[in-house]
Write a protein that binds this DNA or RNA. Structure first.
Lengths: 359, 359
DNA sequence: CTGAAAGCGCTTACAG
DNA sequence: CTGAAAGCGCTTACAG
């Protein structure tokens, strides 16, 4: 993992000496001014000049040097065994950890909570420690703007792609996942009356910003579904828009609305497992049985699939493999701008059967 | 966050110079030998002497100095927005992050996967970076042996307690949680035929090692339950032992066995949500309705509670508050050996009702 | 192999 | 305020 194009030391990294020079003061004075120390009784005017110089040069202190000198790093570590959990995030971390372990590299995880200001502080800190590389990851598959600080070191996007498609990225193959879901229904004998549950609320389309984010899964899954249905001479009977969160309540409400409108689907393809669980609830409430009356298939392959009766058939996200591959690409310094798509496999439950009409 | 008793610089930290002295070689030679470089054509015998000296002194290189000199840190960072997920682990991280943010401290997370060798490598690396403090956390509440490397800096145990109770720790109040669960059933009118699902398999007791770990939740929850029932003049009708994993299948099998033995409980207290979901399945299979025929209550307050019909009543783990408090104690340098117990609150679903016999 | 030295970028006590 | 200096712990080119 050598330094990236923009990651060379010295190439651009501003030091305190340079700030002092520009401000026309001693290094000591610059240090005192920047750290807001008053021992030296530096005039406010001088302090201001130093701060402006630092600002102008884009100075950011080297945390490694500071730590070496002071014996304090300003950081705390949380050490845990969390990865054991079956969580989306943890599976990605687990995959990356395995690969990096073989490469004798440790993995620090930081969580920005999706907050740009916190992210920026973390990135500054990490860069100032001469981190060898970044895995820039997203909770759910979407398009991101890669921060300049990340671009300054080798990096691989994990579960997201860059705006200009100008970076190495690893994402699930959502199109193929859509194909897989549709094919599962087709091979069970379904042809018509297949509904998709989880479209954007009206006014939104898959291609635009949504919730401040730009998810990829929805549009690509839909394309895969439609392509496969079209090849079999059919198409979706319709799409049920639901609210933002793609949670259980959204799924229940959406399907209740669908059933209330007099439609009797043969099968439901739900945008994720939680929505499918909500669909179960609405179906049960309407006295419909899964899969006897209606088949249900979803995406994600989360623990929810085992919580319902009958168990839910779902096209599983390959989180661990995403982490593994992204780490491998980082270690291997593969410097393409390719988007690597990892296959999603069908996790078979008992929620898909032959359509009621054929029995 | 000052350095802990054993954390002072210089006090004990061995440097390369000391290794070289003990081995009777130059610092250059020591460096070359330890890094396995051959440029200098150091004899195998000398190398061996250096390695022995390093070993004897317990030398571990200072990563900060090394990074400063070489511009490489040997680490990679995974930057993400994972914390948004509703996962046990992430809630703890989120809580800690919030507190530390106010204290202007960043949080690095490392995951050891429960592997002692990987943990040791991480701890070495973190200590060598002069990390200001540790949150030592466990996935589930248990007794841990705190590594010496952690003790070398200020630290707080998160969701675990130390073997000798000689460290500041933050854990859920499991005893009170047991009381809460029992009280919920009592106030719904249940008196007898209350069964506990999730006892250790026979041969194990709550006090001893289990699965290589020593969980606290089970024994303390049971004590709280029994204490509250006793105060109401009753007691558990029995305990259903289940297999190790405390997952959905374990719960289903355990309850199926119980029902198969001819018992008809009035209420079930399940050791966690997953086991309760399994209980639902077994009850449904037996034609019993929740809560009309049997009430069910559990512990954890996970997303599974919303996935089932009726929604599950559960005593919720206060993960975020655990993280928040632990971070606060770390920042405040509270140097007691106190175990702080955080209350668990009742998350009301629709799975508890009056006993069938009273209606 | 040795030994003295430079240098990574910072903070800080010191004499002026 | 300045300015020269030391020092954190390492790596590494250099002359012997």
């Amino acid at each position: 993992m050598a330094r990236g194009k923009d990651g060379q030391r010295g190439a651009g990294r501003i030091t305190l000496t340079q700030v002092a020079q520009l401000a026309g003061v001693s290094r000591s004075a610059a240090s005192f001014a920047l750290n807001g120390r008053t021992d030296l009784r530096i005039s406010e005017e001088t302090s201001e000049r130093v701060r402006r110089a630092a600002e102008e040069l884009g100075y950011s202190p080297n945390a490694t040097a500071k730590t070496l000198r002071t014996g304090k790093s300003g950081t705390v570590a949380l050490v845990s065994d969390f990865v054991g959990t079956t969580s989306v995030a943890n599976a990605m971390v687990r995959g990356a950890l395995q690969t990096l372990r073989d490469a004798d590299t440790l993995l620090y995880t930081v969580d920005t909570q999706g907050d740009p200001e916190l992210e920026s502080r973390f990135l500054q800190n990490l860069r100032s420690r001469d981190i060898d590389g970044f895995l820039y990851a997203s909770m759910f598959t979407r398009t991101v703007a890669v921060p300049a600080l990340v671009r300054g070191a080798p990096f691989v996007l994990l579960n997201c792609v860059s705006e200009g498609s100008d970076a190495t990225a690893v994402v699930p193959d959502e199109f193929a996942a859509g194909e897989t879901a549709a094919a599962a229904l087709l091979s069970a004998g379904h042809r018509g009356d297949i509904w998709f549950v989880g479209d954007f609320p009206s006014g939104f389309t898959g291609g635009v910003e949504w919730h401040g984010w730009r998810p990829l899964a929805l549009s690509e899954r839909l394309e895969g579904i439609e392509a496969t249905l079209a090849a079999a001479g059919t198409s979706l009977a319709g799409r049920v828009p639901i609210d933002n969160d793609w949670d259980i309540a959204n799924g229940r409400d959406g399907v209740a609305r669908l059933l209330g409108s007099g439609v009797t689907p043969s099968a439901l393809i739900c945008v994720n497992d939680a929505v499918a669980v909500g669909a179960y609830h609405a179906l049960q409430h309407a006295g419909l049985r899964v899969p006897d009356d209606i088949s249900v298939i979803a995406f994600d392959g989360s623990p929810l699939t085992a919580a319902v009766v009958p168990t839910l058939t779902s096209v599983a996200l390959p989180h661990q493999e995403l982490g593994r591959l992204a780490a491998q690409l980082l270690v291997d310094e593969v410097a393409t701008t390719a988007v690597h798509r990892v296959p999603m496999s069908l996790s078979r439950g008992a929620s898909v059967a032959a359509p009621a009409t054929t029995r």
